[in-house]
């Protein structure tokens, strides 16, 4: 049997967890996103019928969360690409993790500003 090691909650480990969980959330959301947009096949009215739901606070909140995770996933993904492909810097590119959190916050506020 293999026993547990307690993951040390280093910044790069947290980045991995956030990257993976945000990716998972986005992947689970995607089919619904496609299905809703697909309603446009039946015409504008069908799509609008579903889009009224996006005015619900809970749905708005979920949308907001997805936008934040989307921005975060983008930045953490760019970090991995740079970590793996750019000339080795000797670091785990923590700056990109911070920038990712920053952009996620900016997008979160941008979304809020648009909605409220």
């Amino acid at each position: 049997m293999i026993t547990t090691t307690h993951p040390r909650w280093s910044i790069s480990y947290i980045a991995f967890i956030l990257h993976r969980l945000s990716g998972l959330a986005l992947a689970l959301f995607l089919p619904f996103h496609f299905l809703v947009l697909g309603l446009a096949i039946e015409g504008e009215a069908a799509l609008d019928g579903m889009l009224v739901w996006t005015e619900q606070p809970l749905v708005k909140f979920a949308e907001w969360g997805l936008v934040v995770l989307f921005a975060l996933h983008l930045m953490l993904g760019l970090r991995v690409l740079i970590l793996e492909w750019a000339p080795w810097s000797g670091t785990l590119r923590h700056g990109w993790i911070m920038a990712g959190c920053g952009l996620a916050l900016i997008c979160g506020f941008g979304f809020l500003a648009g909605v409220v």
């Binding site: 790069s12 480990y13 991995f16 970590l83 000797g90």
Partner: peptide, 23 residues
């Protein structure tokens, strides 16, 4: 490898397996 970097932060002599794997 997902470049978590645990190996790199744990290595007692400061090697970077993360780098080797990235290579």
């Amino acid at each position: 490898c997902h470049s978590q970097g645990n190996c790199m932060s744990a290595c007692p002599i400061g090697l970077s397996p993360t780098r080797s794997i990235a290579g």
